[in-house]
Simulated assay, not measured.
Amino acid sequence: MNKGPIGVFDSGYGGLTVFKEIVKELPEYDYVYLGDNARVPYGTRSFETVYRYTWECVQQLFDLGCNMVILACNTASAKALRSIQQNDLPQLDELRKVLGVIRPTAEVVGNYTKTGNVGILATPGTVASQSYVMEIEKFFPSVRVYQEACPMWVPLVENNEIDNPAADYFVKKNLDALFARNGDIDTLVLACTHYPILINKIRRFAGGDVQVISQGELVAKSLADYLQRHKEIEELCSKGVSQTFYTTESCADFNKKATLFLGRELNSKQLIF
């Protein structure tokens, strides 16, 4: 196999929050980012649809030369990752890898909570999958997990309405509902890569005693550890410090909105399939 860039996939823009942290942790590699903006949101779609969309995008990244793809999307990680790893990848080269964002978070979340009560803020699809509940139980059986689906948060972020009073309303509404189930929750996991854009509002309505965990840094450190432990995979990741961005929607729209997530301007390419 030829060396190639590390692929990072998301249903839209949210994965850029993970991409940013990965590049910060591992700046020497080449990267390709693909946002399936034409078909966002994934959070309300069926397992079958999310799997099909995700696998199509992963294959596109493979075709672009990537040997490793990070699903920087919680819904895709919850609904598609296992099928891709167990059913699709064995039919390809054994060195092709697809990793998600749920396990790196579940492996450490128990270290943050003092009360043993953790809240998961996620899309309806991720909540319905029960992925966080099951994964956290593997590593921290005594931790109690409470989930809250936040269906309006992604549209608010995608449409750059985070300063709209509606954003305050829905963030407070969902947090109130979560804490109503257990007032001792002291740790919140932003289980959607769009949600860090709302982190200041989330912290304000959650209160100062509640820790709010954003996944980007956790995923980046987990990837660095993975590459260190799997030298055969690391050797297939090219090092040229290049970054290429693709979207399945309008490039002009993607470039404009992506600055909110990356904090800098970029030029994307459109990918149609």
Rank of each mutant, 00 (worst) to 15 (best):
V101S: 00
L262R: 10
G110P: 12
L236C: 06
S250C: 13
Y42W: 11
N182K: 10
Q215I: 10
F139H: 09
T115G: 12
N87S: 14
R96T: 03
R181L: 09
T44H: 04
D209L: 13
G15A: 05
L266P: 05
S77T: 11
T248E: 00
D184C: 13
D253A: 14
V145Q: 02
V157F: 15
V58R: 04
G208V: 08
P90Y: 13
S268Y: 07
D10Q: 06
R103M: 05
L64C: 06
C251T: 11
K79Q: 12
P41K: 01
L61G: 02
L34R: 03
K138P: 13
Y53F: 10
Q60D: 12
N2G: 09
G207M: 09
A38P: 00
E25L: 02
T115R: 06
D225R: 11
P196L: 03
Y53R: 03
V219L: 11
F245G: 03
D88V: 15
T115I: 14
A220L: 04
D176C: 10
S77D: 07
V157N: 01
S242T: 12
I102W: 05
Q147W: 14
K231N: 07
D186E: 14
C251L: 12
L71Y: 08
G208M: 12
F273N: 12
I272N: 14
Y33M: 04
V32F: 09
M68L: 11
F139T: 01
R103W: 09
L34F: 03
A224M: 06
F273T: 09
F47G: 01
F170Y: 15
N267W: 15
V101E: 00
T75W: 10
V32P: 00
V143N: 12
T123D: 07
E161F: 15
I70F: 01
T105N: 05
E265W: 06
F261N: 00
M68T: 06
E148F: 08
C192K: 00
F19A: 02
G208T: 14
A180G: 08
V58I: 11
M152P: 04
G43S: 11
V109F: 03
G7W: 02
D93F: 15
A191D: 02
F205A: 01
A122R: 00
S83G: 13
S242Y: 15
L227K: 02
P151N: 06
F139Y: 13
A149Q: 01
T75R: 01
T126R: 01
P165V: 07
N111M: 10
S222K: 01
N87W: 15
I197S: 03
V50Y: 05
K257N: 05
D168M: 10
R144S: 14
V127D: 06
E148W: 09
S268V: 03
S242F: 13
V154F: 15
W55Y: 08
Y33Q: 02
L71P: 00
I102N: 02
K79R: 07
R229Q: 12
E235Q: 11
Q86G: 08
Q91Y: 12
V189R: 03
L26E: 00
F205L: 04
Q147D: 15
T247C: 07
E232P: 01
I272W: 15
T126C: 11
D30Y: 07
K138A: 14
L266Q: 01
I136V: 14
G43K: 02
E249F: 13
E148G: 03
K231M: 04
